[in-house]
Simulated assay, not measured.
Amino acid sequence: MPDDLDLALRAALAGAELGLRHFARLRDLSQRQKADGSPATEADLAVEEEVRRTLLAARPADAFLG
C-alpha cells in the first residue's frame, strides 16, 4: 500500500493530466449549476472522478467526499 503522500501525488497528477486535455477545448466545455449555485464544468467532474478512482483503487475501504 502506498504511503499517503505518494498516493496523494499520484491522484493529483492523474487528475491534472486529465484536466489539461480539456484546456484545448475550454470554450466548448459544458457546465451545470451545483446545489450551492456555483458552476461545475465537465472537466471539473471528470477530474474529480479520476482522483476518486485513483484514491479508491488504492484504498477501497476509505470514504471520498468531493
Score class of each variant (00 low, 15 high):
L65I: 15
R32D: 07
Q31W: 15
A14V: 02
R25H: 14
V51M: 10
A24R: 09
E17F: 14
T41V: 03
T54D: 05
L29D: 05
R25A: 08
S30I: 13
L13T: 10
A61G: 12
L5Y: 10
G37D: 04
L55F: 01
K34S: 02
D44C: 04
E50Q: 15
V51Q: 02
M1R: 13
R21K: 09
F64V: 06
A46Y: 02
A63R: 14
A63W: 11
G15M: 00
D4Q: 12
A16Y: 09
T41R: 01
A43F: 04
L18I: 01
L56V: 09
L7D: 03
R21C: 08
E49K: 15
A16W: 10
L5K: 12
R21M: 07
D28F: 11
R27Y: 09
K34H: 03
P39D: 01
L55T: 06
D44K: 01
G19L: 01
S38Q: 09
V51P: 00
E48N: 15
L26T: 08
D28L: 07
A12F: 11
A57Y: 04
G19Q: 00
L56I: 10
L29Q: 02
P2C: 06
D3H: 07
D62P: 10
A58R: 08
A24L: 02
L20M: 12
R21V: 03
R32Y: 06
A43W: 03
D6K: 15
A57L: 12
A12H: 05
E49I: 12
D44Q: 09
G15K: 00
R25T: 11
T41G: 05
A63P: 09
L56K: 04
R25Q: 12
L45R: 03
L18R: 06
A8R: 02
V47C: 08
F64W: 13
R53T: 10
L65H: 15
L18T: 01
A57G: 11
D36C: 06
S38P: 04
L26S: 08
G66I: 06
R25Y: 07
L45F: 13
E49W: 06
Q33Y: 13
G66T: 02
R25G: 11
R27E: 10
A12Q: 08
A58W: 09
T41P: 02
E50M: 15
L13W: 13
E50L: 11
V47Y: 00
L29G: 02
A58H: 09
A16H: 14
P39I: 07
R59C: 13
D6Q: 15
D4C: 13
R53I: 00
R21H: 10
L13M: 14
A8L: 03
A57K: 12
R27W: 07
A63D: 13
G15R: 03
D28Y: 11
A46Q: 10
D6P: 05
M1T: 12
A35I: 13
S30K: 15
A16P: 04
L65D: 15
F64G: 05
A24Y: 04
A12D: 04
L9Q: 08
A46W: 11
L20R: 14
